[in-house]
Amino acid sequence: MYVLITGAAGGLGRAFANECAQRGYDLILTDINESGLKAIKYGLERKYGISVRARACDLTSDASVAELMKYIRKEKIQPDMLLNVAGMDNEGGFIERNITSVLDIVKLNLEATLRITHSVLKERNSTSRFYIVFVSSLASMYPMPLKATYAASKRFLLDFAYALREELKSRNVSVLTLCPGGLATTREAICGITSQGFLGDATTNPIEKVVHNTISLALAGKAIYIPGLLNRSLSTLGKLFPKKLITRLLYIRWSHAQKQWLDMKA
């Protein structure tokens, strides 16, 4: 099994890379952060005594992705699995934010994800089964004031993944969408979790288990994975209540959490 992981130098990407290495898979890692990519490559190689391929790439650039694909062809790598982990989030109200940072979310979470997925699918070995994982979020379940663009981008991925799954079913491709709650990936993520008090702890999923189950479920051909009983219940509740009400409740919750978060940052 050859696995291509995007965003591999981030907290979730590293955990996925580690899980795959533990399963004995071959890895090709990519990320825009070159020094971080080197660190995880060496870390895995030392830990498991394996050889890991790593190549920096700016997924938002056509040229950079073309370079990456050229490298993959040259090295005769045929990925069997694509883990679309690269993504970003910016906190804050729409008009309070710099428009560039809002558009960056769209560029990376959507454009870039589609670009690399398309490129890899074009190159894949059509005789064997292929697996794609999209990292969406629990935020994809509802409209989210103060995280409007981020949540909508994750909704896009969820719907897109379902549709793509159907399109490619007959071509031996399996598509899974991961919709986690909070993940303790970075110092900022921890701030985000603590700012929600007890609910932060309760909706946070253990990364080591999330990555393990994600791979298992992808291999089993499942369509969606929402880790955690509470998160699954929350997502069901989201479907039962009117959108307007849910949005209102989320606004109250996020304004509160965001105030805490800003205090913590200060």
């Binding site: 907290g11 580690n18 971080g36 660190a39 060496y42 870390g43 303790a184 990936t185 946070t204 253990p206």
Partner: peptide
Amino acid sequence: VRSWYMTSNEGY
């Protein structure tokens, strides 16, 4: 002390 599994840049 950490509440959750978190990793360094090396994945440790």
